[in-house]
Design a protein around this nucleic acid. Structure first.
Lengths: 342, 342
DNA sequence: ACCCTGCCTGCAAGCGCTTTCATTCCAGCC
DNA sequence: GGCTGGAATGAAAGCGCTTGCAGGCAGGGT
């Protein structure tokens, strides 16, 4: 097969259709402005030549790339993976494409990624949570790139955001345990230093306990990165360091599942002797038996809505600054009343 | 704060530094070509103005976007999520950015996404597996965009690829079960119509069984989409439709874990009465007890290496067409000898 | 002192598309 | 049939950057 000429340009299409460059351009991007038969000729020529528009050139002329950037914490966390997929789908449906960067809860990496995406011309950006370097938002502001905060809600209502109250949801989990009669509660939290969601979740536990006059000794809190293995290790550490608790709250489902597995291996009956609650409601939570009591985080919906909101704003529509999603407590089998005192 | 002028352009930087546009450009992108003090002035001016290069303009001039496209099956499958993260990291480290599109095992969606990414100027592409619409590869060829096939290996060596033999790995799993003494084996496969990996894995089972003269009746094979819930359902179906098997092979770990959970719920001892093997080695596989026997799929490494290979090729280096990664069998506790015949 | 070499720098021509503005076309009307 | 006005088309000026080419300048050889 003879190597045909390199990619045809719009000028080639115009020539083949016997029209000017301007008309060819309009025929393809603003069909209404061109007479039907002319448009037909252009479309035909484009199809025949296998014309593919040159995005960079178009972007340079229109100042739009039809691209949305997203900077996510580790995409391999199942909860973010779901949101990424949803976001990508939503954008694709509107002819937009996702520019994705991920980092390991490192705000400097987030800043660098944001710069890179803005430089690539992202028309809008999706960020996760409220913890950011000030420069990150400054870069976006300077470049006039609209952004959406996901997962968390900005109570100051200064930024567009879609998510739910991690503290509120955490309070619900804790109250559920308190209502069951638990008073000795432990927490396996995420990294509260670099992650406002983990911080708020832990704060929610504290709030709920404080409201009922229950103490949460420092020894009953372990911080660790999200993973099943870390959940196991943290649970073991708690058991060793401050035994006697009857319930443990995981900062997310993998951590809670780690605790659950550790209980199983040690022959600790769940929920008979130990109640366990998580946060996220990943698929597995509902498939375990007993099922994991947890908070349903609408991750796919966050992904979809973040995309929709951003696209709407880019289309000039006004969108409510804050969108709060429900994050209901899902009570399953891993929580029950504490064991009767001996 | 007075709205400062819109984003500064390179011309502004040049003016501020008292040099020409060309020199400013070289100072920032080809430091070696410019005298040190000149470069210093330009860099200073750029920093002061908060200059952010305009990617589209640069792309138009250089015909490079420093962007790699990836079209993945559902990114929320944990195994792809891991690869996505690894790929994004690898690219970021080299100053490249990931353009991500995901689809639900739909080859037409894959084609559309490929078109979109090529149009956006992806310098290279990452695809998964060998099943594609012919147009998909034609688009890439036409646009002269190098691509890497991941996960699968193209035995014809026509395409650059990095992955492993799904059939081979599947044969190892099956032999392991045969060696343990199993003869009645069932399979919960992924969708073999739209997914060459699932197809090859099933073929591997058939090969291994045939080699030892063991039959795999059609009733002992269920196809379903990847998920724990589907694994459960498929196992139940097998039990109902063709009971008497002593081992089941899952097309991936979630399916196998579904089967495992179903066994637990039904009081079927694993591995005493039922052996279960999976494929992928997701984190959970090793944390369960008993741990799931499975094939370790080096997903993160695939992501990293796909990125590295593509970048190397873009840099003009020659890279071996095929890179095979080990996918070892990991024997854990869910497989054991079949129960003694009654 | 002159020429040549080599290093820096600047000029200007694109990269491929959109879009403003002017021009042409054509239908309809008096 | 000439005129009017709106619709369709075309010419050309960018969008912001890179880069081939040429000019300028300093230093070394003769």
């Amino acid at each position: 097969m003879p190597r045909s000429a390199p990619n045809p340009r719009l000028a080639d299409v115009a020539r083949a259709a016997g029209v000017s460059l301007a008309t060819a351009s309009r025929a393809l991007s603003e069909p209404g402005m061109v007479r039907d038969d002319t448009r037909g000729r252009v479309e035909e020529a484009a199809a025949m030549l296998g014309y593919v528009p040159h995005g960079a050139a178009r972007a340079l002329a229109t100042r739009r790339t039809r691209t949305i950037g997203a900077v996510f914490p580790p995409v391999d966390n199942p909860i973010f993976a779901g949101a990424t997929h949803a976001l990508a789908q939503e954008l694709a449906a509107a002819g937009y494409t996702l520019l994705l960067a991920s980092h390991d809860y490192d705000l400097d990496a987030e800043l660098a990624a944001t710069r890179a995406l803005v430089e690539r011309g992202a028309d809008g950006m999706v960020l996760v949570g409220l913890d950011h370097r000030p420069e990150t938002l400054a870069v976006l502001e300077r470049a006039e790139v609209p952004w959406e905060i996901t997962w968390s809600l900005d109570d100051s209502a200064r930024q567009h955001c879609i998510g739910f109250s991690h503290r509120g949801a955490s309070i619900r989990v804790t109250q559920h345990l308190l209502d069951l009669g638990h008073r000795e509660i432990a927490v396996i939290a995420g990294d509260t230093r670099r992650n406002d969601r983990a911080r708020e979740r832990l704060a929610g536990v504290r709030d709920a306990l404080a409201a009922r006059g229950v103490k949460l000794p420092a020894k009953r809190v372990v911080e660790t990165d999200f993973s099943v293995a870390n959940g196991r290790a943290a649970f073991a550490k708690l058991l060793e360091r401050a035994p006697g608790f009857t319930a443990v709250i995981g900062g997310n489902d993998p951590l809670a599942i780690g605790a659950l597995f550790e209980c199983r291996d040690r022959g600790i009956d769940v929920p008979g002797r130990m109640s366990i609650a998580g946060f996220d409601d990943i698929e597995l939570a509902g498939e375990l038996s007993p099922g994991l009591t947890t908070v349903r985080v609408p991750s796919a919906e966050i992904g979809h809505e973040a995309g929709r909101r951003l696209l709407a704003r880019l289309a000039g529509k006004v969108v409510p600054t804050m969108r709060e999603l429900p994050a209901p407590l899902v009570v399953r089998g891993t929580t029950g009343p504490p064991p009767a005192k001996p």
